[in-house]
Amino acid sequence: MKCPFCSNDNTRVIDSRPADDNYSIRRRRLCDECGKRFTTYEKVETIPLIVIKKDDNREQYDRAKLEAGVLRACHKRPVSVKQISQLIDDVEVEIFNREEKEIPSNVIGEMVMDKLKDIDAVAYVRFASVYREFKDVNTFMNELKKMLNQ
């Protein structure tokens, strides 16, 4: 592992433990050259997952895109980064437990909305408005009414 500070190849692991999500390993490393410490995370490589988009295009699953959408929905809301990360971890576990090579984007969107609903109602409505492509105020109001009735 290269040191991010001096780019030296000689680094060593000084501590190793499961990460908070229990699906990866957190390693503390020490650079033999500059003496600085840094952290790396090791994750099991999974089978490539293809997402089938609404227009039937296919693209490889990208956690960063999912995270960006959830972050946008939670902007200026009392939702912590830890909650967002946990939500995405939970969705990924559900997705990969299906053991399918392709998954429609609407299935992922429904999983996210289901979990967001429990975390923050406003973030849920924001995500739903983009995901379900609300065309007008009536569609928006119908979704709010559904949520209030639950």
Rank of each mutant, 00 (worst) to 15 (best):
M1E: 05
M1Y: 11
M1R: 04
P4N: 12
F5R: 03
F5C: 00
N8L: 03
D9M: 08
D9T: 13
D9N: 13
D9S: 14
N10W: 00
T11N: 12
T11Q: 10
T11G: 09
R12N: 12
V13R: 07
D15R: 07
S16W: 10
S16Q: 08
R17G: 01
R17K: 15
P18R: 08
A19Q: 02
D21L: 05
D21K: 05
N22C: 10
Y23K: 13
I25W: 07
R26F: 08
R27W: 10
R29M: 13
L30I: 04
C31L: 11
C34L: 07
C34E: 12
K36D: 08
K36R: 15
R37L: 09
T39W: 10
T39F: 11
T40K: 05
T40H: 03
E45A: 10
I47G: 08
I47Y: 12
P48W: 10
P48L: 03
V51L: 04
V51H: 03
K53W: 07
K53R: 15
D55V: 02
D56Q: 13
D56S: 15
R58C: 06
E59K: 14
E59A: 09
Y61F: 15
D62Y: 12
K65R: 13
L66D: 02
L66W: 01
E67V: 05
G69L: 02
V70N: 02
V70S: 09
V70F: 05
L71E: 07
R72A: 15
R72Q: 14
A73W: 07
A73F: 00
H75L: 10
H75V: 03
K76Y: 02
R77W: 03
V81S: 14
K82L: 15
Q83K: 12
I84W: 01
I84E: 00
S85I: 00
S85P: 00
Q86A: 15
Q86D: 15
Q86V: 04
Q86R: 13
Q86E: 15
L87H: 11
L87A: 08
L87M: 07
I88V: 15
D89G: 04
D90T: 14
V91R: 06
V91M: 11
E92C: 12
E92K: 02
E92Y: 06
V93A: 12
E94C: 02
I95G: 04
F96Q: 05
E100C: 04
E100K: 15
E100A: 11
E102Y: 10
I103R: 03
I103Y: 05
P104V: 00
S105T: 13
N106Q: 06
V107T: 13
I108H: 01
I108S: 04
E110D: 15
M111G: 02
M111V: 09
M111A: 09
D114V: 01
K115A: 13
K115H: 13
L116D: 00
K117E: 13
I119N: 06
D120K: 10
D120T: 08
D120G: 02
D120L: 07
D120S: 06
A121D: 09
A121C: 01
V122R: 01
F127D: 06
A128M: 09
A128Q: 08
S129V: 09
Y131C: 09
E133P: 00
F134S: 00
K135F: 01
D136C: 04
D136E: 03
M141S: 09
N142V: 01
N142K: 15
K145W: 05
K145S: 14
K146G: 12
M147W: 05
M147P: 00
L148F: 08
N149G: 03
N149R: 14
